[in-house]
């Protein structure tokens, strides 16, 4: 097996050892899902049955997929690289014949896969039954959704990774982490779909990479965006993927150089 598959498989198994945490995630994300479903249904009802292009059914789908993806595409909290810089364990990573970003990216794929199977799928199944929303039947929706989700995860990883890389320059990471968390939970469209944002806020969101992590993939998989409209969405995701890829490569290069010159 190649090193890439090995890393995916290893992280997948590592995640699977935390069974109780996975079960806790299903339970808690599920409860929050029920609360959020009520909130969005009330908003749609308050607006006369349709708000920002959401009706009752699509609103529920939005919440359902959101809660299901929370484990795989985390909105907050991943500081593994930053904490390894703080403890000096990054030395172990640098003394390996593998690129730092490649190493963590493939591990992240394994993590996401386990989180989706262990946390996301049970929520999707239970949620579809409890809230009575059948899964999409159009194979094109599944295809576009799967593509959107994979791109969303990649953009999301690169965002988190870039945040972690800041620790190569400063030990005061807390401010950046808080800022990232605040911005991400709003602008990804996780808290409220960006289609409901007032104009100015929507413009800010649309010019950021954040909806590509979350709002757009959910739009695709829930069948809100279909037909030719899928293409520009995928295009935007790809564009951000490219921008962040270049950005993180530059950061990795200069950050590593700084680390070996400064001595961590």
């Amino acid at each position: 097996m190649s090193v890439h598959l090995q890393l995916i498989a290893a992280e997948f198994r590592r995640q699977s050892t935390y069974r109780l945490a996975l079960a806790a995630g299903v339970f808690t994300n599920g409860i929050f899902g029920l609360i959020r479903a009520g909130v969005l249904l009330a908003a749609v009802a308050g607006a006369g049955g349709e708000a920002g292009g959401y009706d009752a059914r699509t609103a529920i789908l939005y919440v359902l997929w959101g809660q299901a993806l929370l484990g795989a595409i985390p909105m907050w909290g991943w500081n593994e690289v930053a904490s390894r810089v703080r403890t000096g364990e990054i030395a172990v990573d640098l003394a390996r014949p593998i690129d730092l970003q490649v190493y963590w990216w493939f591990r992240d794929l394994g993590r996401a896969a386990m989180q989706f199977l262990g946390r996301g799928l049970p929520i999707l199944i239970l949620g579809s039954v409890v809230l009575r929303v059948p899964p999409p039947t159009d194979p094109l929706v599944w295809l576009a959704g799967a593509l959107g989700l994979i791109l969303g995860l990649a953009v999301n990883f690169l965002g988190r990774y870039a945040l972690n890389l800041i620790s190569f320059w400063t030990i005061e990471m807390q401010g950046f982490q808080i800022l990232y968390m605040v911005v991400v939970s709003l602008l990804t469209g996780f808290t409220v779909p960006i289609h409901l944002f007032p104009g100015w806020l929507k413009t800010i969101a649309e010019w950021s990479p954040f909806p590509s992590m979350y709002q757009y993939p959910v739009d695709l998989i829930s069948g809100r965006t279909t037909g030719v409209d899928v293409l520009p969405i995928i295009g935007i995701q790809l564009a951000w993927l490219l921008v962040l890829l270049v950005g993180t490569r530059v950061m990795t290069h200069f950050g590593t150089r700084r680390l070996v010159i400064q001595g961590g």
């Binding site: 009330a42 908003a43 605040v182 409901l196």
Partner: peptide, 30 residues
């Protein structure tokens, strides 16, 4: 660190309020 934490806690709460604000910007009654 303390100042950052205070600001962070404040803004985390503010985002929670923005959710309610946005929903009420869409509909007059929530």
């Amino acid at each position: 660190s303390f100042v950052l934490n205070v600001i962070g806690t404040f803004f985390t709460g503010l985002i929670e309020f923005v959710e309610i604000y946005v929903l009420l910007a869409t509909a007059p009654i929530f």
